[in-house]
Design a protein around this nucleic acid. Structure first.
Length: 391
DNA sequence: TGCACTAAC
DNA sequence: GCAGGTTAGTGCA
């Protein structure tokens, strides 16, 4: 649907194409989600946010209309400098692998209960789904979807309660494998990691394709059957895009070659780049920019309309430039880079105006936060209370 | 420094 | 009748 169809924006979060959704009737999913959404407080809140983004787009259009050719030329100059700097610093000599476990939580449960293998199943509950197996995805069920909508799409859907201790055990098994390829690998979450395999490839004398294949086979073996997907590229940003390209149980290798990188990135939808979400995608689309190639072409306009940081990260992404070096990780107690900056607990409950119920909630959450702080042996400098209203 | 918002898992 | 929880970062006042 076009960007003027108000409902399409809202539902698009669930009909965006994802791995395992090839045969999904998207129009049907849209109808079901729409039907269940309208009249809800959540929907009204989404619409309000929607209107805000639209207002921002109108402002940016006005700013573009005011742009004189002279100013645009000036932007062009500084932008060209930035392109030159990025191009000079571009390094395609390193090899990164991004590993991403397939439907991780769901796969762990299936491993321990094989009867879940061929039935539609989702980890989560009626409120929210964290992940769904591929049988359920064929019905349009996906992560971040409320369970009651998923149930409407797939009435036979089985819910399984999350069990993080279990996931952590399997993650540890996978990480042992990662360590053999890069002792200093960087875990992004329980089911994702970045590995710098430059050294591994050199000392073993194997190519990236083989290394990724070996890595995946080893993960499957050591976890007792969990599959993962891998992306290989000269930097982390691209490796992450590549791991998604042939999901599930697949891999993609992007060569250590500037031409290959540019050819890959030019037709790539910006939304695929980590860090570009629903809102930025919408704003860019309003100016006719969907792919990285289009962003690069219109870079002076982009520089004029976006903040400096937003512009710089989009420009680098559009050129396929990313982090090639291992990010510095500070030691745990060091309050510098890498140290925790916040710690929180929140819970959604049935709307109530009863003071005592609310005070009870705050007291319980405060207790939990206090316990976590004590466990880590830290004290807080500031306290934030988040209030969510029924509206 | 605080708030609202975006984004990721 | 049912729309999560945790952490980080940005942009603005």
């Amino acid at each position: 649907a076009g960007p003027s169809d108000a409902h399409s924006h809202y539902t698009s979060a669930f009909v965006n194409h994802k791995a395992g959704m090839d045969g999904v009737d998207k129009a049907h999913v849209r109808r079901v989600v729409d039907e269940m959404s309208k009249n809800s407080a959540h929907y009204r809140n989404e619409s309000r946010k929607e209107a805000k983004v639209e207002a921002k787009i109108r402002e940016m259009r006005a700013a573009r209309a005011r742009l004189t050719p002279e100013r645009l030329a000036r932007y062009q100059q500084t932008v060209d400098e930035k392109v030159k700097t990025l191009e000079r610093a571009r390094d395609v000599s390193r090899t990164w692998i991004h590993v991403d476990m397939d439907a991780f939580y769901a796969a762990v449960h299936t491993l321990e209960d094989p009867s879940l293998a061929n039935i539609p199943m989702a980890v989560g509950g009626i409120g929210m789904i964290s992940t769904a197996n591929y049988v359920a995805r064929a019905f349009g069920v996906r992560s971040a979807m409320p369970g009651f909508i998923a149930k409407k799409l797939c009435p036979n859907l089985t819910f399984v309660k999350p069990d993080f201790a279990r996931y952590a055990r399997y993650a540890a098994l996978a990480r042992e494998v990662f360590r053999a390829f890069d002792p200093d690998f960087d875990a992004l979450s329980l089911d994702e990691a970045f590995l710098d395999v430059t050294r591994y490839l050199k000392t073993r004398g194997v190519d990236a394709e083989t290394a990724a294949r070996d890595l995946r086979a080893e993960v499957r073996l050591k976890t007792g059957g969990l599959t993962c997907s891998a992306g290989v590229a000269p930097n982390r940003r691209l490796a992450k895009v590549c791991s998604d390209a042939n999901k599930p149980d697949g891999q993609m290798v992007l060569a250590n070659d500037r031409e290959a990188v540019v050819d890959f990135v030019t037709p790539l939808p910006v939304r695929k780049v980590s860090g570009v979400g629903k809102v930025q995608e919408r704003v860019l689309a309003a100016f006719g920019m969907t792919t990285c190639g289009e962003i690069f072409e219109r870079r002076s306009t982009l520089a004029a309309l976006f903040s400096e940081t937003a512009f710089e990260s989009l420009l680098a992404a559009s050129m396929g430039v990313g982090t090639e070096t291992r990010p510095e990780r500070a030691r745990r107690p060091d309050p510098g880079e890498g140290a925790r900056k916040s710690l929180s607990q929140e819970r959604t409950f049935a709307p109530t105006a009863d003071r005592r119920v609310l005070e009870r909630q705050v007291a319980e959450l405060a207790e939990e936060v206090s316990r976590s702080l004590a466990e880590e042996g830290v004290v807080a400098r500031a306290v934030t209370l988040k209030i969510k209203r029924a509206t």
